[in-house]
Design a protein around this nucleic acid. Structure first.
Lengths: 340, 340
DNA sequence: CTGTTAGCGCTTTCAG
DNA sequence: CTGAAAGCGCTAACAG
């Protein structure tokens, strides 16, 4: 293995000088600098990060921790992160975590001790609190994206789920819908609660009836949505909701499958509006293109990398917080009741 | 920061003893072991990987390098890798690379110098040769998945593209097809050449006509497939191929869109068979479910992690090579001409 | 079974 | 502008 020492010998200088050349220090005689550079390129020398990390206490690399990294949901997020990594000249290491506590700890301990010096965590759960607290108390820099906590001390990037959900209901209202039911996913995720709140607020604001029946819990398998949608279609016409708003694409897809399975059509017989509106769905789906609230995940991904870089460079001083607004993505699953 | 030294002080032992406890050495007095463990958990001490890596020359982590990691194509591959990582208790770091040489070098140099001690590279191109040679000459352990080289010295996992393509043609032949055209992607990828060869061999074997017209080059944008498919549909019935075999899902999807755009149907008017047959397509597609040759990407992903682990543990001695067979995945895009 | 010592490869004072 | 020396945190001989 080629080391500074060997390069130094070959160039007839001291290791310190080699180090200076590597790190682009000014105070080196140009002639010597060239001599050292020549030896470096001839020997193919490259500095050992472990040794560097040990003395500098930094590596310049960023870790991104995501549960189920492989899901198509992350398509845009990963693209954004990748583009930012290229732009900022950073090494970004993606880790695909499971829910298992032990495994999560393993990665945290590995990464935070000399491998990377900052971290991005997507979609933390309540159970991640010990990890977050640990990072925080050891002053390890990190950014949370869509986290479950409510702590302004953390660097975080959020999505305005509340307004997004409100806009969904308003959009449905504009299209003449009043009987709007919510298919709500896992309440242990803060994002779902926010979407629920937005839904409720907008329903009230629009003066629509809001009873417990308006909210259908899809807390377990998303296939519950299939059954729930069928149940709705079996209701008499005059009582049946005219629109279903779902907290995720997955639930929307299942609901639509349930509706179609009974011979009904979307949006002719009932409208469906989703939250997420991702370009890449996890399940096979050939129904009408979803209308829904779209999150700017490419931007969020890009911003997360560039923000953490700037925090590390001292250009941003923490706590950093930014909230992204959603947009309405028009597809084919919402019918305008005002027409015809 | 808590170090071995501090733990040693607090436990009234030497750093060596602490090190022994951490690394689970046998020769430590049980009483002292407990005392040290207690201090470790009280102080929240965790060993610094940079320092460890420096001494041990290994970290136990594995890097996975993939171009366009975000593509849904990698869904099953990543799942397999993740499951294997959990099973083998390894940290796996995924890197999303671009084609830019400089960026690729940056990652290589970062990773190979004290961060990970083995590597998996998916789908290397000819231009990656310097990188591979470098890894090889520095004796850095790595496995290639579907590489572009032909070197039995490398550890590698391959897919039997040749037989896969042959099986596709045979399957079409069994279904009564004789005029089968190939839509072939980028010839700079070895996998495509192998699929081409398999196609040619099987066509010859079946005694079917094989002229240059049988092979349509889709070397640029896959949208060329759209036009090419339209051109085929405009041919007179008696000359028109009865089936198109494509070297990728992307090409198949475009071809089918081209066919449908002219008002023709798949498979009634023409059959389409693909290679890849992934569960997750990158583009929106609502046509009939693809019939095609499926690669066992989950298994490949799982095996890559477990094989490199076993190589590192000395349980497998390199060069390691394994070829996976493909299967036929039946969808809706191939019509049986023997019926009716 | 335990402690002392040296050194992994690098950077960074501090002298010169 | 350059070199010598010390040390980052850890482990692996080697004594004891």
């Amino acid at each position: 293995m080629v080391t500074v020492k060997k390069v130094a010998e070959l160039a007839n200088v001291s290791p310190s000088t080699v180090s200076r050349v590597i790190n682009g220090a000014e105070n080196v005689n140009p002639e010597i600098r060239e001599r050292v550079k020549k030896v470096i390129s001839e020997t193919g020398y490259f500095p050992n990060n472990a040794a560097r990390s040990l003395v500098n206490r930094k590596t310049g690399a960023i870790a991104v921790l995501i549960r189920n990294l492989h899901k198509p949901f992350f398509y845009d997020l990963l693209r954004g992160m990748k583009d930012a990594a290229t732009a900022m000249h950073k090494c970004v290491l993606f880790c695909n975590l499971s829910d298992e506590k032990e495994e999560r700890n393993k990665y945290m301990q590995f990464l935070t001790n000399g491998i990377v010096d900052s971290m991005i965590l997507y979609g933390t759960l309540y159970t991640d609190w010990p990890i977050i607290e640990n990072l925080s108390s050891s002053r390890f820099p990190f950014i949370l994206i869509e986290n479950n906590f409510d702590n302004s001390q953390f660097n975080q990037i959020l999505i305005n789920n509340f307004d997004g959900a409100m806009n969904a209901v308003r959009f449905l209202a504009e299209n003449g819908h009043e009987r709007i039911v919510l298919f709500m996913g896992n309440p242990n995720k803060k994002v779902n609660l926010e979407r629920l709140n937005g839904y409720q607020r907008a329903m009230t604001e629009c003066g629509f009836t809001l009873t417990p029946d308006n909210i259908v819990n899809i807390f377990g398998d998303s296939s519950q949505a299939f059954d729930a949608a069928q149940a709705i279609m079996r209701m008499p016409d005059e009582k049946r909701p005219t629109a279903i708003f779902t907290t995720s694409d997955k639930i929307a897809v299942q609901a639509i499958k349930g509706i179609l399975s009974l011979g009904f059509r979307v949006p002719e017989d009932i409208s469906v509006m989703t939250f997420d509106s991702q370009s890449h769905l996890e399940e096979e789906y050939k129904g009408p293109t979803l209308t829904g609230i779209k999150q700017p995940l490419y931007d969020v991904g890009y911003e997360s990398i560039s923000a953490i870089s700037e925090i590390m460079d001292g250009k941003i001083k923490p706590p950093y917080s930014r909230t992204y607004e959603t947009t309405i993505q028009k597809g084919e699953t919402v019918r305008n009741l005002n027409e015809g």
